[in-house]
Design a binder for these strands. Sequence first.
DNA 1: TTAAAAATTTAGGCAGCCCTAAAAATTTAA
DNA 2: TTAAATTTTTAGGGCTGCCTAAATTTTTAA
Lengths: 218, 218
Amino acid sequence: MTSFSEENYLKAIFHLEKTSTGGVSTNALAEKLETKASSVSEMVKKLSKKELVAYRKYQGVSLSDKGREAAVEIIRKHRLWEYFLVEKLNFSWTEVHDVAEQLEHIQSEKLVLELDKFLGFPRKDPHGDPIPDTQGNFQSLEKVLLAEVEPGQQGLCVGVRDSSREFLEYLDKNKIALGKTIEIIEREEFDQSLLIRLENEELHISKSIANNLFIKII
Amino acid sequence: MTSFSEENYLKAIFHLEKTSTGGVSTNALAEKLETKASSVSEMVKKLSKKELVAYRKYQGVSLSDKGREAAVEIIRKHRLWEYFLVEKLNFSWTEVHDVAEQLEHIQSEKLVLELDKFLGFPRKDPHGDPIPDTQGNFQSLEKVLLAEVEPGQQGLCVGVRDSSREFLEYLDKNKIALGKTIEIIEREEFDQSLLIRLENEELHISKSIANNLFIKII
DNA sequence: TTAAAAATTTAGGCAGCCCTAAAAATTTAA
DNA sequence: TTAAATTTTTAGGGCTGCCTAAATTTTTAA
Ligand SMILES: [Mn+2]
Ligand SMILES: [Mn+2]
Ligand SMILES: [Mn+2]
Ligand SMILES: [Mn+2]
């Protein structure tokens, strides 16, 4: 029905729609999918013919309801598998993404349903991202980037914006993990870096790190 | 490295080698893979160039050591996933094959290793077929087709030769399952059908059923 | 308002994997 | 041993999804 490639396009459009006003641009998609704009143009026409996206030349694409449903199902599978890999197979949160990129394309309704059940219906993946339920509903949390928090406030580390291996390994190295408490001690105005208290340890982190870490104020 | 398609060819050649003297024929491969002889010719040349098979025009193919290693790894993955689906996700042995056909192509050494460990290093899949270990060693069992057993003998049901959904459903319907005891009471000479005792119940089965069920004489 | 820059689409190709039809080699049966 | 039947390969395409280069449209900035 939908090929791996088509599924990857739908997923990418879904993610890009969250941060783009109007349609998702061809270039944005090309960059996200590490392909060329011309390839995107082509594929987007195909998805449009299948009524998975709405597309007007030069105006970008957006998901149709059907397309969004498909995208959410892929994201659901991706995150359930990530959870499985970490909880059952001793994978670290830095290792799961690439394997999940493959597993998310396995076609079997029963598989997803039973996997979800087997895992105890988890609602967050190892990176703190919500796992949509069977209906496609996300259970979202009010979270804020650490970079946007004022000194004196504290919160629980609940997610990452960048879930690249490099960033996650940086967090591991500095013992920053989901569920830990973080308090902002002070912000250096010159470079916007932060001095934080992480479970009783003081730590200095740069603005770009703070910009990729979500916390929930407590 | 190897595409889904190439992997399917390698696996098919591996299975066909067991019952063919000399190279595996183009037609045999085409039938197994539900494709055309011309496609097989083409692919076989490609696999030969990659040194995964030995191939001489008109003489059929056989796996190289490298090719056999790859094939065994795919079979290992297929059977581990089948075991997982049955033992952890409530799949029946009739349902696992198609999903395993997809899962066997997932590329991740760690995934296979950890899955094997998670499952407790099972050495038989739900159909009684051996699961090769990390080294590629099969632990095979002396088993015999029920059709070849003489009246009076009894054995343990240990495997199926045909693992199609239809055959497995027939077995389910008649409560024939791996691990159960079967005794041959008598063979009808006219049609080679058998009267058997299955755990204290008498049952009549045709020759073609007996021809697809493996038992271990006890 | 217009020209340059940037974004997007179209044109033309390539690789993988499949197909049908035709040609060639091998096997089988006279 | 030879002709017919069968098997296998080759020729010629199709389709998907990718790419580069050229054309077109839109946006930005004089
Ligand atoms: Mn991921
Ligand atoms: Mn994730
Ligand atoms: Mn199977
Ligand atoms: Mn099996």
